[in-house]
Write a protein that binds this DNA or RNA. Structure first.
Lengths: 343, 343
DNA sequence: CTGTTAGCGCATTCAG
DNA sequence: CTGAATGCGCTAACAG
């Protein structure tokens, strides 16, 4: 009937040894004889003591084995995005191997402060929707690492978005094409729309603008200027936003014959819409994606896209955090040529 | 250059009040005048004290605002499963509303013990692959809730799997059909195979066996016995396992004309394989799924399946945990008739 | 190799 | 409404 959980002190008393000995038996095997240690552990097992209280250890040692993964947006959204969930996969695999725990943190929360005291570090995946979080992370002192964006000189994992976009666009664009772009988070709007003259957001920091730069550079090489009327903004890489944008693009007149999409989800939705309208891909419409998600492999025709390994990113981020890496890393990408640009 | 973080004590000294006052200012507004409180908070803000240390609070108060979500399998696997990630969505939305944090816990970990001391409670989604975790959860004293399975009298969230399976099977099966079943975790094998006479696992506790019961009942009503040779086991609801199973079923002779699948992922893979082989669905082959995932809506012909709302399950689980609900709940399901059983 | 001690940072008594 | 004292459960340093 002992309702109260055993404490290290209780156990020490019961076994007639000092608290330090019990503590050492669990945490520092080198501090006592093997025999004694095993005897103690056996006794503990017998009386139902499963080891030092973790909450107390967190306070005392200042570490918890918990890593916070700060997502760009709400957990609800992130977990259903194939790119984000693949990233989480990489992170969690690595953390689990190292005995660390994963705390998911929403990028639209108010503050990081209510976990900063007990977490061991932060992995920050994408610029958080509430950008204050990024500033708080920069300001605090625990190890942190950013992915797909940067804050000051916090170590980070990125790919070369400008070049990746350039490469895929270069593969797709031919002379005299009419080129449109389905972009992500280019302006501050909750709806799908052309960007026209709206003020651009995060022009220097966002990967979307790097990709835009790459697209524009490739187009320019073919003597093509992409007018802002041909650039769409989508608030998220989401099927329903993509469907609207696809419709607008395909109804345009003249209709673009090359559409560069900033995510595979967007590209696939465009592809489906086009096929449903009887448009010949790639002869009447060329499409490129970005990310290299699994679903793209199952599409017909195969999507031309930039493959970036989100698993590798996740692993790299977790490893960098755990190993105290302090440099910024650029990971490689792969161009994948499918039949959406050349039959 | 004060490198060390401010403590409540430091602040009390600097402001010339007692520690209790500072503590109360943050935690118990009713314990001091509004004016004083605001003044203190303002001062704290000014000197850069962001509130009581959370690690210390966890030890002192015994609560952390962290809820552990114990998944059935590794986080890596769960996060890419559409059903599980939708569930996570429901959980996280509810938790975030209530200011709780989400710790993802893998069901193939060794033990729950390294978080039990600081977590506020457990949501256990599906029987953990390492079943010892379930026992540990039953044995400890923090609030817990199970979903899609039960342990003793821990409160739980379930649907009526037997009836759901019965309903969908009844809709699909006609007299003289040859019925096959693509099942999940029916026997202890890491590979896709027919179950033959292998010993069944968790016959009483697993939802898969409840579904099997439902299928069998519906078949029996049409005078059909489903031989074990026509029942497949898949270790996970995974596309590649499903592809193998689909191939085996479709190559069988005689070929079944009705296949009941225990998940939509399996059913969709079977549908694709069948269509690729030129088999007419539903005239030569009827297919049913289970779950009602989004992707099933996009398939043509539309999949006949059982819709269960994973978001609702997640919300129900989180709410039940937070409100101290102690009963077991049965959530409703919906039969969705698509063209995979009747043209 | 073992036992004693002093906090980790805080929340809550209880007097005043 | 305030201030001093106690201990949440543990670990690290130190002395033996």
């Amino acid at each position: 009937m002992k309702k109260t959980k055993l404490t290290l002190k209780d156990v020490a008393q019961q076994l007639g040894v000092s608290t330090a000995t019990i503590s050492n038996a669990f945490n520092r095997p080198d501090q006592l004889s093997k025999g004694k240690r095993e005897e103690i552990l056996a006794q503990c097992e017998r009386i139902g003591y499963s080891g030092p209280n973790k909450a107390a250890q967190i306070l005392r040692k200042g570490t918890s084995n918990i890593v916070a993964l700060v997502l760009a947006d709400s957990i609800a959204y992130m977990v259903s995005d194939p790119v984000a969930s693949t990233f989480i996969k990489g992170v969690s695999t690595t953390l689990q191997q190292q005995g660390k725990h994963l705390l998911l943190y929403a990028g639209d929360s108010n503050s990081i402060l209510d976990v900063v005291d007990f977490v061991d570090g932060f992995i920050c995946y994408g610029a958080p929707r509430n950008y204050k979080l990024a500033q708080e992370i920069a300001a605090q002192s625990k190890p942190a690492i950013t992915v797909d964006f940067d804050i000051d000189d916090v170590p980070s994992i990125n790919i070369d978005n400008e070049n990746a976009a350039y490469e895929v666009a270069k593969a797709a664009i031919d002379e005299n094409d009419i080129v449109a772009i389905l972009g992500l988070r280019l302006i501050d709007s909750p709806t799908t729309c052309r960007i026209y003259d709206s003020p651009l957001i995060d022009v220097n920091s966002s990967i979307s603008h790097r990709r835009l730069d790459g697209y524009v550079r490739a187009a320019k090489e073919q003597g093509i200027e992409i007018n802002n009327e041909w650039i769409w903004h989508l608030p998220e890489s989401d099927r329903s936003y993509a469907r609207q944008a696809a419709k607008e693009v395909l109804m345009s007149s003249p209709r673009p014959n090359t559409v560069l999409c900033m995510s595979d989800i967007i590209a696939l939705e465009l592809l489906h819409s086009a096929l449903a309208m009887g448009i010949d891909v790639p002869n009447e419409l060329k499409i490129t994606g970005f990310d290299g998600i699994e679903e793209a492999d199952r599409a017909r025709p195969h999507l031309t896209t930039v493959c970036q390994s989100s698993v590798a990113k996740g692993e790299a981020a977790a490893n960098a955090l755990l190993s105290g890496e302090s440099r910024k890393q650029i990971l490689p990408f792969d161009l994948k040529l499918g039949e959406t640009i050349r039959s």
